[in-house]
Each structure stands twice: as C-alpha cells, then as structure tokens.
Amino acid sequence: MRLPCPLCGERDHSEFVYRGDANVVRPDAEAPGAQRAFHEFVHLRANPAGWHKEHWYHEMGCRSWIVVERNTLTHEVRGAVTAAEHTLARRPAPVADEGGR
C-alpha cells in the first residue's frame, strides 16, 4: 500500500504508523457530560466498510501526522492532507473581531 504524504510524496505504508479514525474530535473537558463525550471519543468508532479518513504518522519520514482517505474494502487511497490542516479546516470559523484593528 502506498500513501501520498503531503510533504514527502508517495511512500510505502511501512514508513508510517497507524492511528485510526480521523473524524473523532477531542471534546471539551469542561463541558457538561464530558466523561460520556470522552468515552465516545476514545472508544466508539464508525468503523465503516468503505471510505475512511484516518490518521497515519510518517514516523520514518517527516514526522507529520496526516489524514489519509482510504477505502477499507479495497485499500484504494484517494488522497491525504496534513492532520494540522485537517484540524484547522474543521474548526468553526472564528467569530469576527468586532472591535476592528
């Protein structure tokens, strides 16, 4: 299996370390129901048979965590972005600073 590291280019998956579902988001520890939310974050998985966004770590390369879109039925890979990009893109847009600059 070959993974397209956004920084290093396509590499064999044996250069990477796997870490599972990239759709789960670490909850707010202060919010009500945090324990339940953390349980779901740590333990429960959609585990789809099909396309899956997942974390891989280019341990033997650039040390980037990346989000790879891969099909769990066929192992086809559609693409990858860095985890940092992925996380920032999912953040709600910052509220406009009304005070101006």
Binding site: A22, H55, Y57, E59, R63, A83, A84, T87
Partner: peptide
C-alpha cells in the same frame, strides 16, 4: 522514547495545531 515522540506530535498536530 519513540512512542512518546509520536504522542507529542499527535497532540500537537491533531489536537492543537494552532
């Protein structure tokens, strides 16, 4: 040593890239 490096990178890049 390796596992913690992985973990530290994970926490930064996945949870708190900002």
């Amino acid at each position: 040593a390796g596992l913690v490096m992985q973990h530290v990178d994970y926490c930064h890049q996945v949870h708190w890239p900002e």
